[in-house]
Nucleic acid binder design. Structure first.
Lengths: 138, 138
DNA sequence: TTGCGTGCAAAGGTTTTGCATGGCA
DNA sequence: TGCCATGCAAAACCTTTGCACGCAA
């Protein structure tokens, strides 16, 4: 039994969500969100950022990623109007650049692994490592 | 170029590696490794465990994984004597099982990413996270 | 008015760093 | 002997918790 807890709409929560929507192309750490909001003159305590993110992840509008490098979690807004869009990450091991890859081919990949290998890939946790174009040409 | 640093062979390093080999079916945190070694009467300082793991990951005999909880990193020995560089690894985030996946489809994936996204995937460093069949049925 | 939300300070847990000492080669 | 390795203590980080006060409904 869920104990549906009431949720108030507050300035801080809206701002955390808006920040993620504004940056939906990237993923942000809790710290970065706090920093961005501060820059915009809309300071929100870090504790509150964490608690707001917790709620947002719970209700599915935001995804939590575990990024390998830092020990900090990253968050990204998920537009659920688009259908379950796959989003893999490529990370260059040379320069550290993170590439956000949205590509239909990758949905096929997920389907293939699911059907042929009985394994459900979780792309929120998966990062493909390699070398980006710029670094390959060095 | 690289400044090849000499590496000494020490009791502690051997024991950390052996511990991982003994448990190659599982993944272990730095803390668990320290604990196991202590139980075996071969105490190794936690700092040293971390530093040994760092080296082992660097030279590719051990892989660093992110675990479900996300708090601490997990490590697992990878047997490179087999041609592991030819295939991808799937890791179940529930049970920790490591699956070696050999499949032509995945070479295509590599080709696709290389051609369409100008990125060379290094599958010795890449792990696809997800849930295996057994765990999905729980 | 009720009770969730906020944010400071402090706690908790993991990993890294400084430094003097130890040990491989 | 020259350096790297070790391990204690402490620092550095990220995240969570306790608590008094603020604020949405």
């Amino acid at each position: 039994m869920e104990k549906e807890q009431k949720t108030y709409k507050t300035r801080q929560r809206s701002q955390v969500l808006n920040c993620l929507i504004d940056n939906k192309a990237k993923h942000l750490t809790a710290d970065e969100i706090a920093f961005i909001l501060k820059e915009q003159g809309a300071e929100v305590g870090k504790t509150t950022v964490y608690r707001a993110l917790e709620k947002l992840v719970e209700d599915g509008s935001v995804r939590k990623y575990l990024c390998e490098e830092g020990k900090s979690a990253c968050f990204q807004y998920v537009d659920n109007s688009e259908e379950c869009h796959l989003h893999f990450h490529l990370k260059c091991v040379k320069c550290g650049k993170l590439i956000h890859l949205e590509c239909d081919y990758l949905s096929d990949l997920e389907k293939h692994i699911s059907e042929h290998h009985k394994f459900t890939v979780d792309n929120t946790k998966t990062v493909l490592y390699g070398v980006c174009e710029a670094c390959a040409n060095v």
